[in-house]
Amino acid sequence: MSLFPIIQPETAEQTVDLPLCREVKWDYENNIPVWRGGEPVIVSGAQAVLSWAYRALQVPRYRFAVYTWGYGNECESLIGTAYTDELKQAEAARYVRECLLVHPYISEVSEVRVKFDEGTLRVSCVLETVYGEVDLDV
């Protein structure tokens, strides 16, 4: 027993066995799920993580009761702020990282590039997942 139970000694990286990630396949051009034979198509592995990440970046955090408070992003809060363009881009990049890193299959978000284009936020980044690297463009 430790005098400070909240402080734990550093140990070797703990690995948790995660089940195979499975999600609904997404049509990125039309922003709708893919259906076949009246049922949604299910993908697994890196494609499933990419599908989840794409959808998570589409949802404003805290707006819809159907989602947990950890799901979605806060980029919408930048609308109408008097921040400089550089600060808005830095904040948007931070919000993107926070949004994506809640997923247990994503260990790192790198090369985040954000661009405000006529009222639309464009995001591209590289996700380091348990299945390898995947590129995300939203």
Rank of each mutant, 00 (worst) to 15 (best):
F116G: 08
W52R: 15
Q14H: 09
T15K: 11
I32C: 07
L18V: 05
Y67G: 05
L50Y: 07
V24L: 05
V126P: 11
C125P: 08
E86R: 14
V123A: 10
T84R: 04
V16G: 08
A56Y: 01
L136A: 10
R113A: 14
Y67N: 09
E86V: 11
D17R: 10
E128N: 03
E10F: 07
P9R: 14
W35H: 01
C125V: 00
A12Y: 02
R22M: 11
Y54V: 06
C21G: 03
T15N: 11
G38N: 02
T15I: 07
P5F: 12
H103E: 08
E133L: 13
V134N: 10
V16A: 15
A65S: 06
V96Q: 10
I106K: 05
C75S: 06
V96G: 10
G45I: 03
F4C: 05
V24P: 05
K88H: 06
V16P: 00
V102Y: 12
G119Y: 00
L121P: 01
D85T: 12
L121I: 08
L127I: 10
H103N: 08
L100S: 04
E29S: 08
W26S: 12
S51D: 15
D117N: 13
Y67A: 04
L101K: 00
W69K: 12
Y131N: 14
V43S: 03
V134Y: 03
A92G: 01
C125S: 11
F116S: 07
R97K: 13
T11P: 01
L18Y: 06
N73S: 13
N30D: 10
E29A: 13
P9S: 14
Y62F: 14
Y71I: 07
A93I: 00
V59A: 03
S44A: 13
K25M: 13
C21S: 04
Q14M: 13
Y95N: 04
S44P: 02
S44C: 11
H103D: 13
S110I: 00
F64A: 12
V130T: 14
Y83L: 07
A92L: 00
M1S: 15
F64S: 10
L100V: 06
D117Q: 15
A65G: 05
Y71T: 09
L127M: 09
E111N: 15
T15Q: 09
Q89D: 14
L50K: 15
V59T: 11
V130F: 05
V41D: 06
A65K: 04
S77I: 00
E74K: 14
E23P: 01
R22Q: 13
V126Y: 14
I7K: 07
K88I: 01
Q14N: 10
V49M: 06
P5R: 06
I79L: 08
Q14G: 12
L50T: 14
I32T: 10
Y83H: 03
L136C: 11
D135R: 15
Q8S: 11
P60C: 12
V34P: 07
S110A: 08
S44K: 11
I42A: 02
L20W: 06
L100G: 01
E111S: 08
R94Y: 12
E108G: 05
T84A: 06
